[in-house]
Design a protein around this nucleic acid. Structure first.
Lengths: 213, 213
DNA sequence: ACCTGAACACCGTTCAAGT
DNA sequence: ACCTGAACACCGTTCAAGT
């Protein structure tokens, strides 16, 4: 089918394609090989195992984040931009998001974002320990937001099914939930994400001020 | 092996056991059947598919959260307690956490926590839309924190490997990261979680005040 | 109603053989 | 160095047969 030689990047790209087309459950070495028009075992010349391939998928998606950092800008603006850049994963590779988030990478693929975030927070006047703490908090919020956005987090947030079978939610047992079904049934992901982001940045900013820096 | 009859709860319990013992990857219908001392196909009399079984695992773990709500307490205290109760999942069923978080449930299993949270936020004076927004933000933060705690979120937070191969992090390319390796290499999950929780509660509290209620 | 073994269409990966 | 088919030890699930 393709004249190009088999290579690790081409295999990873095929895997990402397959995941976006049919979901992570559809991934198999045999399927990817078929998509590339080669025998299964050919893959193993470039990738040691399926697990390693999925790690490579995660690393690649992570490394494709476009961080356009403006070191001259306000630290809060820089944090905003970095958080939004990270969130782009969910838009560019929605069905890979779970793969990215569920693989424990041991490479340095995700190190650049970390470096930038730490530098930004240090420039805002936080010491090392504070910067790490704050970074972890932002990552927790962002990762959790991505999972909701990608439609994976349980029972909470867009509950279209509940809206549809509104009768299923007993208004006596769950008065608040059933009265808020309209609100629970829709979710403006942009607005939702920005709301929490601003809240966190605001909280961080006022934590920085009072302590006097 | 066991005199008790096969039943859905027994199958789910065996699945949870297996996940906690050997991880989610070890789960197979055949393995669970073997653990229960029955033929594989017997399982299908109580559970329609492996996917449904994993959903049941998620629901069961979710429903075992111990929410001890004190409706008389301060709303901030109630939010604190509910967030901590949710986090108990990571302690009680660490290796099931990813399963819980990665399954999109359509049952009402997780509705009770939602109801309680909404009621608490309404009692604090937030209107319906605000309560939903705030709940989603807390859930994002908690879910993201659980994933870090369970050791699954990529490259960030406890980077023991990086600490071990400290030589791997180029201090020229990643000055902040490499100088903060000690801080990045350890993580007090309790402290980390409480830090973000208090920050969020504080921010919510001051968002409530100014608007005058 | 519940259990079951055989069978089918898949998996990931090892190995020995090719070029 | 790279590719490959056969083979092995697994999968989830359908179906027909048992009780």
């Amino acid at each position: 089918m393709s004249a190009e030689p088999l290579s690790r990047p081409r295999i990873v790209a095929a895997a990402i394609d397959l995941i976006e087309r049919e979901g992570a459950d559809a991934v198999s070495m045999r399927r990817i090989a078929a998509d590339l028009g080669v025998g299964v075992m050919s893959l193993y010349n470039h990738v040691p195992s399926k697990a390693a391939l999925l790690d490579a998928v995660a690393e690649t998606v992570l490394s494709e984040i476009e961080f356009t950092d403006d070191p001259g800008a306000d630290w809060a603006d820089r944090v905003r931009m970095q958080a939004r850049a990270f969130r782009q994963i969910a838009h560019h590779y929605p069905r890979c998001t779970m793969v990215v988030v569920s693989r424990q990478l041991k490479s340095t693929a995700g190190l650049l974002p970390v470096e930038r975030a730490l530098a930004t927070l240090r420039s805002a006047g936080f010491d090392g320990a504070e910067a790490v703490r704050i970074l972890r908090m932002f990552i927790a919020y962002i990762v959790g937001s991505l999972l909701r956005e990608v439609g994976v987090t349980p029972t909470f947030a867009p509950v279209h099914h509940l809206q549809v079978d509104a009768g299923k939610v007993d208004p006596v047992l769950f008065p608040e939930t059933s009265s808020l079904l309209p609100e629970l049934g829709v979710c403006d992901h942009d607005a939702e994400f920005e709301f929490g982001l601003e809240l966190l940045i605001g909280a961080i900013a006022s934590a920085r001020g009072p302590r006097g820096r």
